[in-house]
């Protein structure tokens, strides 16, 4: 049993190589252990004090978000809110203010829950994850990362160090919404993110949609290429139908599969609509859940 506080990335990677599990905010790992989901790993290495791991950096290709960046930072970051809105929408919904201050993006991604709130947004934004081990680093797409509920393709000695998100094309916008029964301390019943690029005539040039909590991993909707050229309303309607059709939800204490299948379509339609409004230059406050639809103030 050991708990190591890593001061440098190398220390953390060494600890992982020796069999330790990383802990960032601990909001999944510790809470899960308390609830009997999985016992707390015998050896832990804390990665929350490694210099640089909690920074957001603007690059030529887009932005690089350190794995230890908190949801609180993400929801309030001006560039992320304006340009990578679906990610900010997701982070702003996580738990409570306390959870958002402690919980990290890397933890959310590596925990690999299909109900995670940043996953769908990152997917439609085309993000890649940088994994590093002592031997070197590699980049994987999110589709390649998540393999099953709670499982990733990362090796035990690999640390997620950063998430790279490319700069969206001009006239693009994105949004993430979830179905929730209350406005804090909630888990997505279903969720949907959309990234929309508009043509100069206002029609949809490109659309990407991903869904949460309706499949074993975040589900990227297929077959949307054919929608290019359609009006926002038509695309939103077609996306809603595709979402309901491609989802493979389960029934549990939160909802039946039938209801999830219906509501994920509603979320997808709203996500496309909100993303298109943002693409057209409109500002919709983060999180979009509080501005339109179910969670809205009035």
């Amino acid at each position: 049993m050991s708990f190591t506080i890593a001061r440098t990335l190398d220390e953390a990677l060494a600890a992982l190589a020796a069999g330790a599990r990383p802990i960032a905010g601990g909001t999944d790992l510790v809470v899960g252990a308390r609830h009997g989901k999985a016992p707390l790993p015998a050896d832990l290495v804390a990665i929350d004090r490694i210099p640089g791991l909690a920074e957001v950096t603007v690059t030529a290709a887009g932005i690089t978000i350190g794995a230890a960046v908190s949801h609180h930072t993400l929801e309030g970051h001006p560039l992320i809110a304006s340009t990578y809105s679906a990610l900010a929408d997701g982070s702003a919904l996580v738990g409570s203010p306390a959870t958002r201050h402690v919980g990290t993006l890397g933890g959310n991604i590596m925990n690999a829950s299909p109900a995670m709130d940043t996953g769908a947004g990152l997917t439609v934004l085309g993000a890649e994850v940088e994994l590093r081990a002592q031997a070197g680093s590699r980049r994987v797409t999110l589709a390649d990362l998540w393999t099953a509920p709670g499982r990733t393709s990362a090796r035990p000695d690999e640390l997620c160090v950063a998430v790279h998100v490319p700069t969206p094309a001009p006239r693009s916008g994105s949004a993430y919404l979830r179905l929730e029964y209350r406005r804090a301390m909630e888990i997505a019943v279903v969720g949907a993110a959309a990234a929309v690029t508009l043509a100069p005539d206002g029609s949809v040039a490109a659309v990407r949609v991903a869904l949460s909590a309706v499949a074993p991993t975040i589900l990227s909707l297929g077959g949307l290429e054919t929608l290019a050229g359609g009006s926002v309303n038509d695309v939103a309607a077609a996306v809603a139908a595709a979402a309901s059709q491609q989802a493979t939800p389960i029934s549990d204490v939160r909802a039946t599969d039938h209801y999830r299948r219906h509501t994920v379509g509603v979320m997808a339609r709203r996500a496309v609509a909100a993303a298109a409004r943002r693409a057209a230059g409109e500002t919709i406050a983060i999180p979009v859940n509080r501005s339109i639809g179910i969670g809205a103030a009035s």
Binding site: Y181, A184, M185
Partner: peptide, 10 residues
């Protein structure tokens, strides 16, 4: 998590 009390936000 599954027995949903109202929160201050609600």
């Amino acid at each position: 998590l599954e027995y949903k009390l109202q929160t201050c936000a609600d």
